[in-house]
Amino acid sequence: MADFATLDELKARLDWTLDADEERIATSALEDASDLARIHAGLEWPDAASAPRLVRTLVLKACKRYMTNPSGYTQSRAGDETLGWNDSQGEDAGTVYFTDDEQKLLAEVGGRKRGLWTAEVSAWNSVRRPVTAGLVPVAQPTPDSKPFPMFGDEVEPW
C-alpha cells in the first residue's frame, strides 16, 4: 500500500533539514502513520490519491509530532539534565501515534461514527401499526379494540 504523504511533504513541514539517518526514520514514520490511518479509518484506499485530503494532513501531523520529539518527552530541563515522560501518551510515547481527536476524525472519514445507536427490532412477518405516544398496541387486535394507555395522565405522562 502506498503512503498517504511523501517525504518531501513532511520535509516542508519541518523546521530543519533532515540528514540521511533522519530521512530513513521519517520514511518509516510515514509508513507507520499510513498503516495506522487505514486501521483507524477502517478502509483500504487503493492509492493515496483516492483517500481524502484530511487523511494526508493527519498523517503528516503525526509524523511531524514524532520527528520533532522522537522520544516522547513531556518535560525537559537544561540544569540538572532532567527529562520526563508522563502517562498521557502511555505506550504511544516515542512512537508515531494519532491523538484521540485524530482517531475520531479518521473513523468519521472511514464512515465509522462512534456513539450509542438504536436498531429497530421486529418479529418476522409482523405488521407495523401507528402508535400514539403513551399508548401501547393490543396484542391480538379486534375491529373494536383500542390501544392500551401506558400512562395515567396524557398531559404529564412522566
Rank of each mutant, 00 (worst) to 15 (best):
A29M: 09
A29R: 07
L30H: 07
L30G: 08
D32C: 08
D32K: 12
D32P: 01
A33F: 09
S34D: 00
L36C: 12
L36E: 13
A37D: 10
A37V: 11
I39Y: 09
I39N: 03
H40D: 07
H40Y: 15
G42C: 13
G42N: 13
L43M: 12
E44M: 14
W45C: 01
D47L: 02
A48Y: 03
S50T: 13
S50A: 12
S50D: 00
S50L: 03
A51D: 03
A51W: 01
P52T: 09
P52L: 06
P52M: 11
L54G: 08
V55A: 03
V55K: 00
T57M: 07
L58P: 02
L58T: 08
L58G: 05
V59T: 10
V59W: 05
V59Y: 03
L60K: 05
L60A: 05
K61I: 02
K61F: 00
C63L: 06
R65K: 14
R65L: 15
Y66M: 09
Y66R: 12
Y66H: 12
M67I: 10
T68N: 04
N69Q: 02
N69Y: 01
P70C: 09
S71N: 03
S71E: 11
G72V: 09
Y73S: 05
Y73R: 09
T74C: 02
Q75N: 05
R77V: 14
R77A: 14
A78H: 02
G79T: 15
D80R: 10
E81N: 05
T82Y: 08
T82S: 05
W85P: 06
N86T: 13
S88E: 15
S88Q: 14
